[in-house]
Simulated scan of single mutants.
Amino acid sequence: MSEAGRSPEPWQTTSSRMIVADRWIRLRADECVDAAGRTISPYYVLEPSEWISLLAVDVDGNAILVEEYRHGAGVIALGTIGGAVDTGEEPRDAATRELLEETGYVAAEVIDLGATWANFGNQTNRVHHFLAVGCTRVADQTLDDGELITVRVLPVAGLGERLQQSYHQLTWYKALPHL
């Protein structure tokens, strides 16, 4: 039992309205009532696509990473390969596609490391974590409009300390037993 004597219960959504819906983002405002009868309004919920985060390792045992500008934080950051899962696409297929598009590499094997919620406080999507091993470069990058990505091949040792994004770090930690 909680301090107030009640166990958590799901809120009831009494109304919902879409604030923004375009190719980049879906944002809705919900009006909710909690188990104690209190109104929570507006409660903003982001509805992004499912994401993938893939740690790639080449045939020599080095990590294949991407470095790009991240406008929300205003930083150029090193990270795992990632991107949105397209409508109707399986997360594993998205991981394989993003690896090829962002780096020009393909994997001998892709290992599913499970999924976690991106931010279950106000987002509806999950991050699907993968490890790609035995990667070899077969093509040039085929980047989306607006992407400028530098591929970095670095030693795997100590990599977790160099990753700044939380779900990139989580992918690293989930991959450790397989490395």
Score class of each variant (00 low, 15 high):
Pro177Gly: 09
Val151Phe: 06
Gln141Tyr: 08
Tyr69Gly: 07
Pro91Lys: 07
Ala107Cys: 08
Arg162Met: 05
Ala107Glu: 00
Pro8Gly: 10
His129Gln: 11
Glu68Lys: 11
Arg23Met: 09
Asp93Arg: 04
Thr80Phe: 00
Ala95Pro: 00
Tyr167Pro: 00
Asp58Trp: 08
Phe130Glu: 02
Glu47Gln: 12
Pro10Gly: 02
Val20Phe: 10
Val59Pro: 08
Ile111Gly: 05
Gly72Gln: 14
Ser41Glu: 14
Trp51Ser: 01
Val151Trp: 04
Leu65Ser: 06
Ile19Pro: 02
Leu143Asn: 13
Ser2Gln: 14
Val138Trp: 09
Glu109Leu: 12
Ala115His: 03
Cys32Glu: 06
Tyr167Gly: 04
Ser41Met: 13
Glu31Ala: 12
Gly74Gln: 06
Glu102Met: 04
Arg6Ile: 01
Arg126Leu: 09
Pro8Glu: 09
Gln169Arg: 15
Arg126Val: 02
His129Ile: 02
Ile149Ala: 04
Ala63Asn: 02
Val33Glu: 07
Thr14Asp: 04
Ile81Ala: 00
Glu109Ala: 11
Val110Trp: 00
Gly79Ala: 10
Trp51Gly: 00
Ala56Asn: 07
Asp145Gln: 08
Trp172Thr: 01
Pro42Asp: 06
Tyr43Phe: 15
Gly74Asn: 09
Gly121Phe: 01
Glu161Tyr: 14
Glu90Tyr: 03
Ala108Lys: 15
Gly134Pro: 03
Arg70Ser: 05
Leu55Ala: 04
Ser2Leu: 10
Thr150Trp: 13
Gln123Lys: 10
Gln12Gly: 03
Thr87Val: 11
Val151Lys: 01
Leu27Asp: 01
Gln141Ala: 05
Glu161His: 15
Val20Glu: 14
Thr136Gln: 14
Val33Leu: 08
Asn62Gln: 10
His71Ala: 13
Gly114Ser: 10
Tyr105Leu: 07
